[in-house]
């Protein structure tokens, strides 16, 4: 599904990602953990095609495509979805209007019929129910005035509508109350299919009780310093990151 090879990326001349290697197979869930500022969102952004990052070295192969050559929308149409850590507020653009445009662009790319207003509404209601999102949020401007939790839920709702192959959830758990966390995680689990993969960026082991990862990676200072099975997350919760920081220095 996804193979990241020796990825280096910088922002404004500062190198943030300093040689990432990661392989995600179809059907797998990978968790990425790591201290603040270690580069998790940068990695997620590079995968989704955020243009403010410069990739200086390395390659990303996604389902046979050279991902770095693709525009953000082309990636989305090929099934990449990023749930933003900080969803953007877009005044004047209704949540369903923009999502319909996105879904139909993706469907068109797949050679499917575009959905008309009625079909779309039906789909949207169904998915809103799945992630227990308040229907009044559908017609409001994208994320505008949404609470922190509502914004996160809106991300998962969009994911449910767009049905990506590779979903990258960047701290979707932060800002969610405990019940919301469970519904959102349930939503993610219901959407899982043997041919879909998920990358979950999180600070908390708690989420991983619900969305159980196949692998856990620890990102420190722009490198994956440790990978393991889901027990690694528990270990991190216990010991923090400092012991790995030391290890990364030793490795470097």
């Amino acid at each position: 599904m996804l193979e990241i090879i020796n990825l280096h990326a910088s922002v404004g001349g500062n190198e943030i990602l300093r040689g990432i290697d990661l392989k995600v197979n179809a059907g797998e869930v990978h968790a990425i953990m790591g201290p603040n500022g270690s580069g998790k969102s940068t990695l997620a952004g590079v995968l989704a095609g955020r243009e403010s990052y410069q990739v200086t070295e390395g390659k990303i192969i996604y389902n046979g495509h050279d991902l770095l050559e693709m525009a953000p929308e082309a990636r989305a149409r090929e099934g990449i979805f990023l749930a933003f850590q900080y969803p953007v507020e877009i005044p004047g653009v209704s949540n369903t209007y923009f999502l319909k445009a996105g879904l139909n662009a993706i469907r068109k790319h797949k050679g499917l019929e575009e959905l008309d207003a009625i079909e779309f509404l039906k789909l949207v209601k169904e998915k809103a129910k799945l992630v227990e999102m308040d229907e009044t949020l559908l017609s409001r401007p994208v994320n505008q005035g949404f609470s922190g939790g509502e914004k996160k839920r809106n991300e998962i709702f969009q994911m449910a509508v767009l049905e990506p192959k590779l979903a990258i959830l960047d701290e979707t758990d932060s800002g969610l109350d405990i019940d919301a966390l469970r519904t959102v995680a349930d939503g993610v689990n219901k959407l899982r299919r043997p041919d879909n993969s998920t990358i979950v960026v999180t600070h908390y082991q708690r989420l991983l009780n619900y969305i159980v990862p196949d692998y856990v990676h620890v990102l420190v200072d722009g490198r994956i310093v440790k990978s393991g099975r889901k027990q690694l997350a528990l270990e991190l919760e216990d010991k923090g990151y400092d012991w790995l920081r030391d290890e990364s220095v030793v490795n470097a």
């Binding site: 989704a48 095609g49 955020r50 243009e51 403010s52 525009a71 953000p72 929308e73 990636r75 989305a76 149409r77 979805f81 990023l82 933003f84 969803p87 953007v88 877009i90 923009f98 999502l99 445009a101 996105g102 879904l103 662009a105 993706i106 790319h109 994208v142 969009q158 767009l162």
Partner: peptide, 13 residues
């Protein structure tokens, strides 16, 4: 730009 990226990340050109 952030809003543009957000829309593009949902498949909109």
């Amino acid at each position: 730009e952030e809003a543009i990226f957000y829309l593009r990340s949902r498949g909109i050109d």
